[in-house]
Simulated scan of single mutants.
Amino acid sequence: MAQASPSMLPPWRQTGDADGRWPLLLASPHSGRHYPAALLAGSRLSLMQLRRAEDAFVDALLDGISGVPVISATYARCWLDLNRAADELDPAMFDGVLDVPAVISERVQAGLGVIPRLAGYGLEINARRLAVQEAGDRLAALHRPWHDRLAGILALARARHGSALLIDCHSMPSPTGVRPPQIVLGDCHGRSSHPAIMTAIEDHFRRLGWRVARNSPYAGGHTTRRHGQPTSGIHAVQIEIDRALYLDPHRLTLHSGAGRVRAAFTGLVQRLLADWPRLVGPAPFVQAAE
């Protein structure tokens, strides 16, 4: 784990064996519930309003998984969004000229950059502009270590198995429309994962009776784009689950459905492990001799 100062909470909680013995890695980047004092003191919002940005308790849905590594963020998404590129920054949020790169993407324009401006529609987080140093400090403390850790675990798994899969776990507000999806799988429209993996994951959730969609309205974020490189043997799939399946979205408390969702994730891991060689076929590269 990344080195933290004595006053800093570790950037993530990790369970399972991260030494390459398993070809899978599960991550929950948006379920962190640590709200630094500086965020609370400088925000115009209440804690409950800030928590609207969380993928609340997604980490708890992964608690039934043993052996396979699971990594969950500890810091709140309102402090830093691990599923955004490091340069997705809004210069207007800061009190001077940024000393790190900034790209005004559509997400930044919507207030949802790597350091978010909004916790939800119309919910402006900060009461004043942030110090310029905040951007670099937060990225160095949380963003780089997180993605380095994911990459390191995946590299060990690929070295041992010839391929590896990252499952990036999220929750979504209940979609609208006639029979909307309850599970949305994202593989960047086929660019971040082998199609057989997506088919297996979709089939798993459909067999459990849930409606499943691919890449709409969520096709995958920075994590799937950065780490999913199927031609190099590393696959990445984003899973979005309807919060209503396991959570009271107004009180942010788990309800009885959480047990079913937890069992679904545990069963998915078991199925993928059992089917892994068949799903990905032979290793897509020749390993150099030691």
Score class of each variant (00 low, 15 high):
residue 195 P to E: 11
residue 186 G to R: 05
residue 213 A to P: 06
residue 205 F to E: 10
residue 207 R to L: 07
residue 203 D to K: 12
residue 212 V to D: 05
residue 210 W to M: 04
residue 198 M to S: 11
residue 197 I to R: 01
residue 212 V to Y: 02
residue 181 P to K: 02
residue 195 P to W: 11
residue 198 M to L: 14
residue 196 A to E: 01
residue 207 R to N: 05
residue 195 P to G: 02
residue 193 S to C: 15
residue 206 R to L: 12
residue 210 W to C: 07
residue 187 D to H: 08
residue 188 C to S: 12
residue 201 I to T: 03
residue 186 G to E: 01
residue 207 R to A: 12
residue 184 V to C: 07
residue 193 S to Y: 02
residue 193 S to E: 09
residue 203 D to E: 14
residue 191 R to N: 01
residue 195 P to I: 08
residue 210 W to V: 07
residue 206 R to Q: 14
residue 182 Q to F: 04
residue 200 A to M: 07
residue 193 S to A: 15
residue 187 D to Y: 04
residue 207 R to E: 13
residue 181 P to L: 02
residue 206 R to N: 13
residue 205 F to C: 11
residue 184 V to T: 03
residue 190 G to K: 09
residue 200 A to H: 07
residue 186 G to M: 04
residue 200 A to L: 03
residue 194 H to Q: 11
residue 203 D to Q: 15
residue 184 V to W: 00
residue 189 H to N: 13
residue 185 L to V: 05
residue 191 R to H: 12
residue 210 W to R: 14
residue 187 D to F: 00
residue 202 E to Y: 01
residue 192 S to V: 02
residue 196 A to D: 11
residue 212 V to F: 04
residue 208 L to S: 10
residue 195 P to Y: 03
residue 197 I to H: 00
residue 198 M to I: 14
residue 185 L to K: 06
residue 209 G to E: 13
residue 182 Q to M: 09
residue 207 R to C: 10
residue 210 W to E: 03
residue 208 L to T: 13
residue 204 H to Y: 00
residue 183 I to C: 02
residue 181 P to M: 05
residue 207 R to H: 09
residue 206 R to D: 06
residue 213 A to F: 07
residue 202 E to I: 01
residue 204 H to M: 06
residue 198 M to F: 10
residue 211 R to D: 06
residue 203 D to P: 08
residue 203 D to R: 15
residue 191 R to E: 08
residue 190 G to Q: 12
residue 207 R to Y: 03
